[in-house]
Amino acid sequence: EWSVQQVSHWLMSLNLEQYVSEFSAQNITGEQLLQLDGNKLKALGMTASQDRAVVKKKLKEMK
């Protein structure tokens, strides 16, 4: 059960800090993070497919 802050730290740990402000603005918590798919990541401004791939891979490892 991650807070928005913990999601931000997680993104930073993946060197994806450029997305922290948008994820925070949308109040993405750990629970919501686990529901994100490629389209939702795109909607959050994650347009680079490599970045989405990293996030999806890491989320899969956490589930």
Rank of each mutant, 00 (worst) to 15 (best):
E1G: 14
E1M: 13
E1Y: 12
E1N: 15
E1S: 14
W2D: 08
W2V: 01
W2L: 04
W2S: 04
W2M: 08
W2Q: 02
W2I: 00
S3K: 09
S3Y: 02
S3P: 03
S3T: 15
S3E: 08
S3Q: 11
S3N: 15
S3D: 13
V4G: 03
V4R: 08
V4P: 09
V4F: 09
V4H: 07
V4L: 11
V4T: 12
Q5H: 11
Q5W: 07
Q5D: 15
Q6S: 06
Q6H: 04
Q6T: 04
V7S: 03
V7R: 00
V7D: 00
V7C: 02
V7W: 00
S8Q: 10
S8P: 00
S8G: 15
S8T: 14
S8N: 12
S8L: 12
S8V: 11
H9S: 11
H9M: 12
H9W: 10
H9V: 07
H9K: 15
H9I: 12
W10G: 02
W10C: 02
W10S: 04
W10I: 11
L11S: 02
L11M: 07
L11D: 06
M12W: 04
M12L: 08
M12C: 08
M12V: 09
M12Q: 15
M12K: 14
S13M: 09
S13T: 10
S13H: 03
L14A: 05
L14R: 01
N15L: 04
N15E: 09
N15V: 00
N15H: 12
N15W: 00
N15F: 04
L16K: 02
L16T: 02
L16I: 05
L16V: 01
L16F: 08
E17L: 01
E17V: 06
E17H: 15
E17G: 14
E17N: 14
Q18Y: 06
Q18M: 09
Q18T: 12
Q18N: 13
Q18D: 10
Q18P: 06
Q18C: 10
Q18I: 06
Q18V: 07
Y19N: 09
Y19F: 09
Y19G: 10
Y19C: 03
Y19M: 09
Y19L: 05
Y19V: 06
V20G: 05
V20H: 00
V20W: 02
V20A: 12
S21P: 15
S21V: 09
S21K: 14
S21E: 13
S21Q: 15
E22M: 11
E22I: 09
E22K: 13
E22G: 08
E22Q: 12
F23W: 07
F23I: 05
F23L: 05
F23M: 05
F23V: 02
S24A: 15
S24K: 15
A25P: 03
A25T: 08
A25N: 12
A25W: 00
A25K: 15
A25C: 10
A25Y: 06
Q26E: 08
Q26T: 03
Q26V: 03
Q26R: 11
N27L: 04
N27C: 07
N27P: 07
N27W: 00
N27H: 11
N27D: 09
N27M: 08
N27T: 05
I28G: 04
I28P: 04
I28E: 05
T29P: 04
T29S: 13
G30E: 04
G30F: 10
G30T: 01
E31W: 02
E31G: 08
E31I: 03
E31Q: 14
E31K: 12
E31D: 11
Q32S: 09
Q32I: 12
Q32V: 09
Q32K: 15
Q32M: 11
Q32Y: 06
L33C: 05
L33Y: 01
L33Q: 05
L33F: 05
L33M: 05
L33S: 06
L34C: 08
L34W: 04
Q35V: 08
Q35A: 13
Q35T: 13
Q35H: 11
Q35R: 14
Q35C: 12
Q35W: 01
Q35I: 07
Q35F: 03
Q35P: 01
L36E: 06
L36S: 07
L36G: 04
L36N: 05
L36M: 15
D37Q: 01
D37N: 14
G38S: 15
G38R: 10
G38W: 00
G38T: 15
N39A: 15
N39S: 13
N39F: 06
N39W: 06
N39L: 09
N39Q: 14
N39I: 09
N39C: 13
K40L: 03
K40C: 04
K40V: 01
K40F: 05
K40M: 08
K40T: 09
L41T: 04
L41V: 01
L41E: 05
L41R: 02
K42G: 05
K42A: 10
K42H: 06
K42M: 11
K42V: 08
K42I: 13
K42Y: 05
L44F: 03
L44V: 03
L44G: 06
L44K: 04
G45E: 03
G45I: 00
M46D: 04
M46G: 02
M46P: 05
M46T: 03
M46R: 00
T47M: 12
T47C: 11
T47Q: 10
T47P: 03
T47R: 10
A48W: 02
A48N: 15
S49K: 15
S49N: 11
S49V: 13
Q50M: 10
Q50L: 08
Q50Y: 10
D51T: 03
R52N: 00
R52S: 06
R52V: 14
R52D: 01
R52K: 04
R52L: 13
A53C: 09
A53D: 10
A53K: 13
A53H: 10
A53W: 09
A53R: 12
A53Q: 12
V54N: 06
V54K: 15
V54H: 10
V54M: 14
V54Q: 11
V54G: 05
V55Y: 00
V55I: 13
V55T: 05
K56S: 12
K56T: 15
K56V: 15
K56W: 12
K57W: 07
K57L: 08
K57N: 14
K57T: 13
K57R: 14
K57H: 11
K58V: 06
K58D: 08
K58W: 10
K58C: 10
L59P: 01
L59D: 07
L59N: 04
L59K: 03
L59C: 03
L59A: 02
L59M: 04
L59Y: 05
K60G: 11
E61A: 11
E61K: 09
E61Q: 11
M62V: 09
M62F: 11
M62E: 08
M62A: 07
K63D: 12
K63A: 06
K63Y: 06
K63E: 11
K63M: 12
K63Q: 13
